[in-house]
Amino acid sequence: MTALDTAFAASAVLAVLGGLLAVVTRHVVHAALWLVVALLGVAGALLVLGAELVALVLVLVYVGAVVVLVLFALMLTRAPAGPDLAHAVGPWRAVGAGLLGLASAGLLASVLVPLADGSVDRAQVTTTQVAGELFGTWVWPFELLSLLLLAALVGALAVARGHRSRDPKAVP
């Protein structure tokens, strides 16, 4: 158990706890906030694994932008401040979802754990290297990504602008 393992374990526990609470809480806003915690934990884990840039981006994009967006959306859709009773689910659904999650985790773990046959040296990939590959090898997906963002932006704008079409069958 090296120091890295310890650090990783700590981040992982944070991530798992955050994730668990984000999934089980009945307060919608809390769910979003617990997600922040979980993502921070994941970012920590990634940091430990040596992917500083990814961790940073995760925090910046997810915590900084996505979660805020989610919160806004919750507000706009008039989420209640307390427990979200309108979208409460029955116990069977909860148990079923839990079992589904357990099964997924179990399946994944069962195939992955045999691969982990010991400690390995953490490969060092510097941010410079990453940047070089990103703008060298991966330039084409990167450009496509920009188009994707553009399209998402245009689409989101158009959708959010509301139904200004004169579709006769539109419900006012």
Binding site: A12, L20, S104, A105, G106
Partner: peptide, 15 residues
């Protein structure tokens, strides 16, 4: 890491 990934996925699926 592998366990963390598995657990996160499990949580996500449940969510």
């Amino acid at each position: 890491p592998y366990l963390l990934a598995a657990v996160l996925v499990g949580l996500g699926v449940a969510g």
